[in-house]
Amino acid sequence: MEPTQNSFLSEVVQASGEKLQACYQCQKCSAGCPVAYAMDILPNQVIRHIQYDHRERVLSSKTIWICASCYTCSVRCPNNIDIAKIMDTLRNIAIRSGVKPGEKDIPLFHSVFLDAIKSKGRIHELSLILQFKTKTRDFLKDAALGWKMYRKGKIKLFPSKFGGGKEIQEIFNSFEKREAK
């Protein structure tokens, strides 16, 4: 199957560097996937949908967000297709094209996480969690566990100082410029 120009297939092939045309639907990827049970389309079906140019179906799926990037599929594919990498590519494209994601909280978490790096350079776990909970309005979940961890000295109250803020800003500036294109 040769990708036609400007097709979704060619976009994914080019961005991931993976020859997913080689897939012969053996389903080994899905058989070993630890989170397949929670997906709306299985990893092998994702590949098939891409081949058929079903852009919306793939980009708005739950699957691309539920994939835990464990690489079990990638190491087992008889055609050497790095499916985990393709999942990354799909998430990248989905975010850039502003498609409504099939899972709400997961992409939200990633954006809160990146905001935290942008402002502090490092992840301060407590601030990250509070920030995320502010967005999901779910303060009670894990509150008791948080207190236990605090008492064991596992929760740092204040972020550490960091240098390199200017470089981090530059990295994010050019990322935001690319995304805006």
Partner: peptide, 16 residues
Amino acid sequence: WTCCGASSAHCTSEEL
């Protein structure tokens, strides 16, 4: 040192 970007960065943008 600063954060490596972890999974949130590679899920969002490979360049980032």
